[in-house]
Design a protein around this nucleic acid. Structure first.
Lengths: 173, 173
DNA sequence: CAAGAGTGTCTAAAAATCATACACTATCGG
DNA sequence: CCGATAGTGTATGATTTTTAGACACTCTTG
């Protein structure tokens, strides 16, 4: 059951970290906890982390979670394929939404439901691990661009940077 | 300035529709309004719509916006490349988040700020119109998969459905 | 009607991809 | 320490894809 790899939990409340270790220990092979976000990148460079659970409420209320967003961006920049799940207070849902737009995989609101948290984390990891063949990605993108050009194959081909004839061939299969 | 095409506004409150016509008329070449969502697909089949502004509060409070989500999915299914911006009450932000996961481009909360609404709609359209060359999409996807395989080129190539040598060639440029 | 834009198809040349192969390195269990 | 296994980097020739260029056709529009 412990096949979900390594999780990094970042929260400035030690009680939360202890709770996380207990709650998540049964699901993740390794639970790393950090009381402050400064060590995130260092930790992720040393250790292969499969998912990050990041609390947004550092420096309580001082700057409405801007710090959290900055850390999220830092993680996303260095490790674009490691999913980050945010933790916010319910009143801060707008912050969580900002986070989603900035690349977070998902978020949970405090106080959280353990089962929901685990499900959210599993989903985030599963989604990040799912790999699509190159051919499929290409076909999907071609379909969208042709749609966007309202069926104008010449324009679509130009925007895709390929020849009209090549686009024909790709559409046919 | 009216180069943002056609917008479809769906809201069961006639006053909102009137306000939308006035507020959005200066930005969009054509503002189509619908008092009920039943006509959405029919309208979109007849007319080329560039963005949809969809209120989630039909059948007030009866089923917490499930209807809105269903309409969102219908639109997204038939017209996957037309961005949909949701309108929800502030208390229903969770609904808006569900909507985002279901493919909505963005959302605004009622009561809205006109400038913010226009900005949100413009962003949604700009983003939906931006077209990426096929080569770039391919390179990005290759990069991600290689990263996900932690540098194991053989595995990455297999998952991408291409040869190891081909992957080499793609990485080199 | 004439011009322009788009379509569908063809050819031969150029480029990319494939299967296969070989030498090399690193890791791990016996 | 040795052999097995897995991965890397590179090479070759055959095969497939893509390209440039061209031609005939349809549509729309001034």
């Amino acid at each position: 059951m412990k096949d979900y790899g390594t999780i990094l939990v970042v929260d400035d409340n030690p009680a939360i970290l202890t709770a996380a270790r207990i709650c998540l220990g049964g699901v993740f092979g390794k639970v790393i906890t950090l009381a402050s976000p400064e060590g995130i990148l260092a930790t992720m460079n040393q250790e292969r982390v499969d998912v990050v659970l990041l609390d947004m409420n550092f420096t309580l209320g001082v700057n409405s979670g801007q710090d959290g967003l900055l850390w999220l961006r830092s993680i996303h920049k260095r490790h674009p394929d490691v999913p980050v799940v945010l933790v916010t207070a319910y009143a801060d849902i707008k912050l969580a939404v900002r986070g989603l737009k900035d690349g977070a995989a998902d978020f949970v609101t405090k106080p959280w439901d353990n089962a929901e948290l685990v499900r959210t984390l599993k989903d985030a990891i599963d989604k990040s691990k799912e790999i699509v063949p190159l051919e499929e990605v290409e076909a999907e993108h071609v379909r969208r661009v042709v749609e966007k050009c309202h069926g104008n194959i010449s324009k679509a081909a130009e925007m895709l940077g390929i020849t009209r004839q090549t686009l024909y061939a790709k559409i046919k299969k």
